[in-house]
């Protein structure tokens, strides 16, 4: 796959999915502690999300870093907007801001 196709796929995923997580491994088997932490937060909050395992595609793995000018994974996007990586999500969650963020973005949560 060429770089542009990878970039197109990233854009498509970010726009098509209200909550989109780029991570290492899958939500069931995260391959990295930081990805696992974000999965845990999202699951805890009852948020429905889609995910992509960047380890399966080196071009997506590099592409997602270029896409948001953000050098690390995981990365979470909500309604097309980059929210942050593990540290930011953890801080937002602990401060109760993440809940507000999802509510304001109109993301449904199961409680």
């Amino acid at each position: 796959m060429t770089e542009n196709l990878a970039m197109d796929r990233i854009k498509h995923q970010v726009l098509e999915n209200d909550v989109m997580l780029f991570m290492k491994g899958s939500p069931v088997f995260p391959q990295c502690g930081f990805s696992a932490a974000v999965v845990q937060i999202l699951n805890h909050m009852g948020v429905k999300y889609s995910s992509t395992d960047v380890l399966e595609d080196p071009e997506v793995r590099q592409g997602i870093k270029d896409f948001s000018n953000w050098p690390t994974i995981p990365q979470l996007y909500v309604k097309g907007e980059f929210v942050g990586g593990c540290d930011i999500l953890r801080e937002m969650f602990e401060a109760g801001e993440l809940e507000d963020y999802f509510d304001k973005a109109g993301v449904l949560r199961e409680s």
Binding site: W70, P71, G84, E91
Partner: peptide, 10 residues
């Protein structure tokens, strides 16, 4: 913002 702070460090 948090994102901008981290971006600056990155």
């Amino acid at each position: 913002t948090r994102v901008d702070r981290e971006r600056l460090i990155h």
